[in-house]
Simulated scan of single mutants.
Amino acid sequence: MRILLTNDDGIHAPGLAVMEEIAAAFSDDVWVCAPAEEQSGMGHALTLSAPVRLRKHGERRFSVTGTPTDAVNLGLRKVMPQMPDVILSGVNRGANLGDDVTYSGTVSAAIEGALAGVRAIALSQVLTSDSRNGGTETFAAARAWGARVLGPLLDTPLPDRTLINVNFPPMAGDEVRGIRPTRQGFHDYARGSVVEGRDPRGRPYYWFGLEPIEQTLDHGTDLEAIDDGFVSVTPLHLDLTHYSSLGALADRYQQ
């Protein structure tokens, strides 16, 4: 099995090292093509206004001066001699739950793989409050449960343009209660906040993403599973069409 690894935290991120350990349980044909620097929150951005550089760090290990989407594109088109059997993106430092997946470079790298017709799985480690506040971060749940989660996913039939989003709860491996297939939840973004400050020259600046966002733990969602201590496994697909609205729109334009 040929595996391509990527992420949005960068080539030197500790979560990528964890991802390499997990991938080694399934194959010795593992390639890495990841951003040279952190690209969190870049979503599905593609670099169009500047050249992207490719750097080789070792056998089957490369970085790109661009986004996670750039990394997957160069990994597939320039780095690997043949298409991989699976793309694994992560392990991300922090959650990619609910509608946060639309911002996530980790999930977007998997999206790019799915668009290319490759089985793609995004993996993220939800952080403890101590890790979020600058304490020692831990990938304990991802280390303990990564291979157990991936095993069944590597040969589960998936429709075209479908990917899997995995999140590990913020706890020790022996505290995780199991694996739960889930649907995507939703955050209450209307209650979010923007932190304002001033730089040394007295000019205002604004910082996003520093405070937890309210969330509704609807039954069966990824948010609920993590809160209950389970690994969440969520199938996502790329057809964003809201089919039930098509009839109403057709009626409007026929008037």
Rank of each mutant, 00 (worst) to 15 (best):
A17I: 11
V176Y: 06
Y253K: 02
N133M: 13
N133G: 13
A17D: 13
G151E: 15
P169G: 04
L97I: 05
L210E: 12
G43I: 06
V18I: 14
D100L: 09
M83R: 09
V195A: 10
S108N: 12
R2D: 12
M1N: 09
G173Y: 06
R132F: 12
P235Q: 08
A190S: 15
D174R: 07
G98C: 00
E59T: 08
L153G: 06
R183Y: 08
A109L: 11
V52A: 07
G105F: 07
L54N: 06
R143S: 03
D100P: 00
S124A: 15
Y243C: 01
K56W: 07
H12K: 10
D251M: 03
W145S: 01
M42I: 10
T47A: 10
M83I: 00
P212G: 05
P152M: 08
A225Y: 02
A250K: 01
L153R: 03
D239N: 14
L217R: 13
R201L: 15
H237D: 15
D227G: 08
M83C: 02
K78N: 13
A172M: 12
K56Q: 15
L88F: 08
V149G: 03
P170D: 07
G90P: 10
G105Q: 09
E211N: 14
Y206C: 01
L4G: 00
G229D: 08
M80R: 01
A45Y: 04
L223P: 10
S104A: 10
M83N: 00
V101L: 00
A116S: 08
I179M: 09
P235N: 00
R60Y: 03
I111K: 09
G178P: 09
I226E: 11
I87W: 05
A50T: 08
S193L: 11
L46E: 10
N133L: 13
E175C: 13
V72Y: 04
R203E: 12
D85V: 02
H44C: 11
H219Y: 10
P157M: 05
G220Y: 07
